[in-house]
């Protein structure tokens, strides 16, 4: 099969660009730990309220871990618990969340905190809140008639 010289140049260039992209995100994910939220822990979706840490939603200071705080959220149609929470500026926070019923989304608008909540699974992401202000948490996976009413608020305070 014959290929024009320019097409070879183009494909080598394109392949090279894709390889660079993959290397950047691969190194970032596997060496620096910036993986997409992929916690493999499970939970009984009908016993969320009585299973730690979801029996006490909200912000908790922790010691001896790679992060300073744990922020626990429980999602159910059509609300999050807690409905509002204050987080200190610059704190390294592990957000831990799960769903009691159907699929929900969990996105803090304007940040990289964006993950699916799936009944039976725990979703986790570690993040540092670098900027002060209010960050709206929205449900971004359709969950029923009140989907667009489902929200919470993280206030990053100094």
């Amino acid at each position: 099969m014959h290929m024009h010289k320019f097409e070879k140049i183009w494909l080598i260039f394109g392949f090279g660009a894709l390889l660079v992209f993959l290397t950047v995100i691969g190194v970032s994910a596997f060496y620096l730990g910036n993986q997409p939220p992929s916690c493999l822990a499970t939970i009984d979706p009908e016993k969320v309220d009585t299973t730690a840490p979801f029996d006490k939603p909200g912000l908790k200071k922790v010691e001896g871990k790679e992060w300073d705080y744990e922020l626990v959220f429980v999602a159910s149609a059509f609300s999050y618990s807690p409905a509002r929470v204050e987080v200190p500026l610059g704190a390294k926070v592990k957000v831990i969340a799960t769903s009691k019923d159907v699929m929900h989304g969990f996105q803090a608008a304007g940040t990289n905190v964006n993950m699916m909540l799936e009944p039976g699974y725990i979703s986790e992401v570690v993040t540092t809140f670098k900027n002060p202000g209010e960050f709206l948490i929205v449900c971004n996976e359709y969950c029923g008639v009140g989907h667009h009413m489902m929200h919470s608020m993280i206030e990053v305070v100094e």
Binding site: H4, K5, F6, I9, W10, F13, G14, A17
Partner: peptide, 28 residues
């Protein structure tokens, strides 16, 4: 057998796809 197609002038094609490549890279 293939005629020597490399003689075909495809400069404009190369320029066009490179613009396309630049858009991909800038976006990413």
């Amino acid at each position: 057998e293939t005629e020597v197609e490399d003689s075909t002038n495809l400069k404009g094609t190369l320029a066009s796809v490179m613009i396309l490549g630049a858009i991909l890279i800038i976006t990413w």
